[in-house]
Simulated scan of single mutants.
Amino acid sequence: MSYDTLDIERRGAIATIWMDRPDVFNAFNEQLIAELDDACRALDTDAAVRVVVLGGRGRHFSAGADLHWMRRAADSSEQDNLADSRRFAAMLRRLANLSKPTIARVQGAALGGGTGLAAACDMAIAADDASFATSEARFGIIPAVISPYVLRAIGPRHALRYFQSAERFGAAEAKAIGLVGEVVALDQLDAAVGRLAQALLACGPQAQFAAKELIAAIGGRRIDDAVGEETATRIARQRATAEAREGFAAFFEKRPPAWTAT
């Protein structure tokens, strides 16, 4: 895969998508959105890839929307803005629904849509210099397209504050409210991402995808007979897979499971 705004780095079964516009702090425009959507599609169907990391080259993860893109949007019609927003929404949905684990590797600024990108990944690790904001209200707009992912990460109470105040907050606050799972020194960021990626590679890939589907299906629902039946059905179905049989066999035979060889 060859892109103008991205760099794809592969190390074994781990693929890192680097947003590669450091001169504009990896701010995104129409091209980066389209290329990120295409990269996610390609990596999702690549059986050799088990874990996808999203990062930004240079000092910052992503400063959000490119200023030229924002200026064009301000001068565009509602219909043109709708088409633009639909493309952005489709890219975020593809990233969030990837069939393999995704990790956001965040340093420096992750503002506006940059916060949305971090939230759309399954998990996020931030350097201690990272800062976040849903800054749209400062421009008289709302963080609508990123809202499902940010709400999923931080919940409605924190979203009510940050969607309306547009305050910038640091890595420690991001961890406290659930936006990132771990904060480390900047020079330890790659090592921390690597450790998490290795932990993910030790687990069954089909089980990981089934776990993502389980969370999507069960999250937020009332615990009743229907939920009990659905969870019972899902574990029974998973136990019957070849991957589960291999996992149990490897455990009892005290050997690594087959998927760790990939």
Rank of each mutant, 00 (worst) to 15 (best):
A34E: 14
K212L: 09
T134A: 15
F252C: 02
M1S: 14
A216Q: 12
E182G: 00
N29M: 02
F251R: 07
R71I: 02
V145C: 02
F169G: 10
I33W: 10
V184F: 09
T260G: 02
M1H: 09
R157N: 04
D224C: 09
G228E: 09
R57M: 12
I17Y: 12
A153Y: 06
Y149P: 02
E230L: 14
S85I: 01
R87W: 00
N81D: 05
F28W: 15
K212W: 01
D80Y: 02
G155S: 10
A109D: 12
A240C: 05
I103P: 03
F132V: 06
I215E: 11
V227K: 03
V51M: 08
T115G: 05
L36K: 05
R93M: 03
E253P: 00
R255C: 05
R239C: 08
K100T: 02
E230V: 00
R41K: 12
L186P: 00
A171P: 02
Q198M: 06
D38E: 15
D190L: 06
A244Y: 13
R234I: 01
R57H: 13
R41D: 13
R221K: 15
I17S: 11
I142M: 09
T115D: 04
A172P: 00
L189E: 11
R57V: 09
S77A: 07
L98E: 11
L160N: 12
A126W: 07
A133S: 15
M91R: 10
A104P: 03
G247R: 03
T115R: 04
A133R: 12
Q238W: 10
E229K: 14
I215D: 10
S135T: 08
A197I: 04
L36C: 09
L200F: 13
G220R: 11
V24A: 06
A96S: 15
F252N: 01
F61R: 10
A27R: 15
G55S: 14
R195H: 12
S135N: 15
L54K: 05
